[in-house]
Write a protein that binds this DNA or RNA. Structure first.
Length: 469
RNA sequence: GGCGAGGUAGCCAAGUGGUAAGGCUGGGCUCUGCAAAAGCCCCAUUCGUCGGUUCGAUUCCGACCCUCGCCUCCA
């Protein structure tokens, strides 16, 4: 039983999936490296998809790439290269960063400039024109006629009449019937250079909102189950998408709208225009791993503003380390006392392990879910200390963790990678020195090994090597 | 001005009309040749302020204070 908060109704609603969940997530505009504020939305969407799938649902998700707009055109012109070449760089970077954050790729990542998408946009605009939902202005741009769609404003719950007085007419939009009407097709002008497509209304390029509408309906059909994005997309972007799609299809475009709150830095919204932003690559260069960034973005509920700080990501690192140690303990236990019997674990001590998933069922309550995880960790350590767990129970606990991690995707990749031969030799020497209780030699070797970038943790039976950060 | 989110320990953060999950930090203990690491234990008479309802409110109602976002391209 899923309950999700629907922006459209402003209520938690029961969500009952059909055989396939169709999901559309607004992707990046590829004019620069995406920042971690952008990635917060993608991590939230990834968590949502992974949880739906872990609960046995099939999800078809589409994420668009906006590769033509004012900013991409400006960027390409500034560098004197083609739009394609300019955006290709940032598309590539986006996929790299996404992989670092362990975002599962969407089923399709259509780009606005793909010929089939431009065709779909033009077709959609034509229908809107034919039906009187749009009009061609003097300059051959095409605008959506908001007056023709009374429900406009329902998602953002804005009253159009109240808005009117605060809007200002831009100089280049004088030909609109109403100030709030938005562009479906922008007629070519000097600034666009060679970026243009032919249309029945002359050469130009698509407006931003029609891109998503056309790509979403082309790939997922007229009705979508879940549509996600950041809160700043609610108005006007998603409002416009609803207007366009519902005028064309005559049916409800989206059942469930889910929006995540902003990421803040030092209490302020992170944005490119404000200049106070981190990119994934910035943080990775500073030594933070993708999964640490992922955890930091994941661990605050998606509808709460997240204040990103270095202290916060350091705390994420520690929490992950605790999880790693626990998993290692379980795996080492099973290496000694193997058990392949698998059964579905109900409880670990006093903790009901199912609660992890039921917490997420409730509008992705990640804090409660992580609370369950850490309670299980503490409880199983306690039981293991008392030798009160059976091998089959440890096996089941580990299987539970693998399922949990299919949703969280925060497990460490590999324990430490290959240990260099030189280090291995020194460790062997130290082993001998320790056997002879030659502590001076043992300490000297520990220092030497540390100089090579590996720290040693002695346990009763062995020397554990950990690569220094 | 209109719409919206939020104020819970040093930091992050769940939650409920019946007496405060979890993480990080800090302290203690265990283990240990030392160190490191790890594990366990402890750490809010109190939930922005002031009123009200109630046997009882952090949780419901009202007022107020503060922070932040959207209303223009933005996840």
């Amino acid at each position: 039983m899923f309950y999700f908060y629907n922006t459209l109704t402003r209520e938690h609603e029961l969500f009952t999936p059909g055989p396939i969940i169709r999901m559309y997530t607004c992707g990046p505009t590829v004019y620069d490296h995406a920042h971690i504020g952008n990635f917060r939305a993608y991590v939230f969407e990834d968590l949502l998809q992974r949880h739906l799938e872990a609960q046995g649902n099939r999800v078809e998700r589409v994420m668009n790439l906006t590769d033509v707009d004012d900013k991409t055109i400006r960027g390409a012109r500034r560098e004197g290269i083609s739009l394609d070449k300019f955006t290709a760089r940032y598309k590539e970077a986006f996929f790299q960063d996404s992989a670092a954050l362990r975002l599962r790729p969407a089923c399709a990542t259509p780009a606005a400039t793909d010929p089939e998408n431009i065709t779909a946009m033009i077709a959609m605009i034509q229908v809107l024109l034919d039906q009187g939902n749009a009009y061609v202005a003097e300059d051959h741009s095409v605008y959506f006629r908001i007056a023709s769609f009374p429900r406009y404003g329902a998602l953002a719950q804005v009253d159009r009449d109240a808005q009117r007085s605060t809007l200002r007419m831009k100089h280049d939009e004088y030909s609109k019937e109403e100030i709030a009407d938005f562009a479906l097709w922008k007629a070519w002008d000097e600034e666009d250079g060679d970026v243009a497509w032919q249309s029945p209304w002359g050469k130009g390029r698509p407006g931003w909102h029609i891109e998503c509408s056309a790509m979403a309906t082309r790939l997922l059909g007229p009705h979508i189950d879940i549509h996600c994005g950041g809160v700043d997309n609610i108005f006007p972007h998603h409002e416009a998408e609803i207007a366009q799609c519902e005028c064309v299809s005559g049916t409800q475009f989206v059942s469930l709208w889910m929006h995540c709150a902003h990421l803040m830095v030092n209490g302020m919204k992170m944005s490119k225009s404000a200049g106070n932003f981190y990119t994934v690559r910035d943080l990775r260069q500073q030594g933070w791993s993708g999964r640490e960034i992922r955890y930091a973005l994941l661990s605050v509920h998606y509808r709460m503003p997240l204040n990103f700080t270095l202290e916060g990501i350091a705390s994420a690192r520690q929490a992950l380390h605790r999880i790693d140690e626990w998993r290692t303990r379980l795996e080492e236990y099973l290496a000694n006392v193997p058990s392949h019997t698998s059964f579905s674990l109900e409880k670990c001590g006093a903790v009901n392990v199912r609660d992890f998933f039921t917490a997420l069922d409730d509008d992705l309550n990640i804090s409660a879910a992580l609370g369950v995880l850490f309670e299980v960790i503490r409880e199983s350590h306690r039981l293991l200390d008392q030798n009160a767990l059976l091998p089959t129970e440890v096996r089941a606990l580990l299987d539970w963790w693998y399922k949990v991690d299919s949703v969280l995707a925060i497990a460490s990749d590999s324990l430490d990678g290959d240990i260099p031969e030189e280090v291995q030799k020194l460790v062997a020497l130290r082993q001998e020195a320790r056997f002879l209780k030659n502590w001076d030699e043992s300490d000297r070797l520990r220092d030497t090994i540390a100089g090579l970038g590996w720290s040693i943790k002695d346990s009763k039976s062995e020397q554990k090597l950990v690569r220094q950060a």
